[in-house]
Amino acid sequence: MTDQSLAGKLAVVTGGTRSIGRAVVERLLARGASVIGTGTKPDGDVPNGCRYAQLQLENPQSVESLCRVIESEQPHILVNNAGTSSFATIEDIDLVDVERIHEMHVIAPLRLCQAAIPGMKRHRWGRIVNITAISGIWGRPTRVNYGSAKAALDGLTANLAAEMGAHGILANCVAPGFIDTDVLKRNYTEAQRKAMAESVPVKRLGTAADIANMVVFLAGPENGYVTAQNIVVDGGFGRVR
């Protein structure tokens, strides 16, 4: 017996071509959902059976064009996963970069939520999962810009959840810790990644699957009563010193 618990449901996942977003798309498809996954290029590589849409988060016109798709397709599930990191100390932060990062992590997800909510209200069922970061909860050097955007996304989600509870729409965040993705490999040497893994109580980096499993739990029918939360999936890193 295969799990078809999401049959008849449509999901939109931003950043569906690789790492966490791709793992989310795969799991949603495996449970019978139809999925639209986005990537930054005109054509992108998404898992088999997933529809592709281009989305450049820093470009408001591109965001609006995905909003039109969402308004007409009325997904039951929206996962705001796409994003990029930006590291600089407070003294070195470039305001243009602050605008870009907040455009991508706060304004664009807000617009996509706005586009998705009328349909979810009509379905009387909706699940929104926004990917935040532990940098939005615990401060670390050089994460001012990125951490503030992710904290804003969490605040946005909790307040949206307050308005949506009575409509059967649950909205949550998932805050990943150190995840072994392409981005991590690009930003850190192997020795640095090993040291990061050692600093985590479970003594390993997280995988895209670790995060995707939680996202899919929150996005599915087995979640009936979790809303307005920011669920930390970090191997114990944030809470343990």
């Binding site: 909790a158 959840a161 307050a162 509870g165 810790g177 109580p201 479970v202 997280g206 995988t207 699957a209 670790d210 995060i211 499993n213 939680m214 739990f217 009563y225 979790v226 809303t227 307005a228 939360q229 669920i231 930390v232 999936v233 970090d234 191997g235 114990g236 944030g238 809470r239 343990v240």
Partner: peptide
């Protein structure tokens, strides 16, 4: 399916604790 969540207190409360109406 849980491989990386530990040390957490997960609230399953319909939004009660985080929302003031």
């Amino acid at each position: 399916q849980n491989g990386y969540v530990t040390g957490q207190n997960i609230l399953v409360d319909g939004g009660l604790s985080r929302v003031r109406e």
